[in-house]
Each structure stands twice: as structure tokens, then as C-alpha cells.
């Protein structure tokens, strides 16, 4: 039986969206990805990683005994999957940046 799977189908699964966000602009090992998705088994994480690699959304390379993953940003599409992952990642980034800046401002105010 021939089975077809496109990017939209691949990206319809929230765990795979999360994995894509995690490896959007950095390389992570399978173990590091599994640590973030601690509510599912390592086997389930491996399965999701396999689907993302097969779909061309992420690439994998070996480093010693580890497998290292990274998003294939140039291959992203269609639009919804690409932009959803893109803006989601930016909101994560903003949260980190703004909360750090807020803490710094509060510390400075305290010192005055």
C-alpha cells in the first residue's frame, strides 16, 4: 500500500510542532528533545523525529553515539505549518527576552 503524508499532516500533530520549535534555530540531540517532551516515552519521541526527518522538515546527523537534529528551515512549507512554527518560536523568544528585561529593571529600581 502506498501511503502519502504531506507537511500539513505532519505538522498537524502538536508534539511534532513542539519538536520543530525546539530545533528551529539550534541543534539538539534526541535525548535533549525527549527531556523537553517528558510526558511521552522516548520511543514515541523517536517515532515523531522519524516522521519529521522523512518529511524533510528536520535533518539528522551523527555525532559519536548521538543523533543530532535541526530544522530544515529552507524546506519549510506549506504556509500554515511554516508560519505557525515561526511565530510560535518568536513568542517564546519574546517571553524570555521581556521577562529578563523586566527583572533587570526591577533590580535597578531596588538599587536606587
Amino acid at each position: 500500500m502506498i501511503r502519502m503524508m504531506n507537511e500539513l499532516t505532519i505538522m498537524g500533530e502538536p508534539r511534532r510542532q513542539r519538536i520543530l520549535n525546539l530545533v528551529w534555530d539550534r541543534e539538539l540531540s534526541a535525548g535533549e528533545i525527549a527531556n523537553d517532551l517528558s510526558d511521552i516515552s522516548f520511543g514515541a519521541v523517536s517515532q515523531h523525529l522519524g516522521i519529521l526527518v522523512e518529511g524533510g522538515l528536520i535533518s539528522v546527523r551523527r555525532e559519536g553515539r548521538s543523533r543530532i537534529y535541526r530544522a530544515n528551515r529552507g524546506e519549510m512549507g506549506p504556509l500554515e505549518a511554516y508560519l505557525t512554527a515561526f511565530w510560535d518560536r518568536k513568542l517564546d523568544r519574546l517571553k524570555e527576552q521581556a521577562e529578563k528585561l523586566e527583572k533587570k529593571k526591577k533590580m535597578e529600581k531596588k538599587d536606587e
Binding site: 503524508m5 504531506n6 507537511e7 524546506e75 512549507g77 506549506p78
Partner: peptide
């Protein structure tokens, strides 16, 4: 992109 990334097995 969609066509390019369609996977079949």
C-alpha cells in the same frame, strides 16, 4: 514545497 516534501513509502 508541498509537492517537493510529499513523502511516499
Amino acid at each position: 514545497f508541498l509537492e517537493k516534501n510529499t513523502v511516499s513509502w
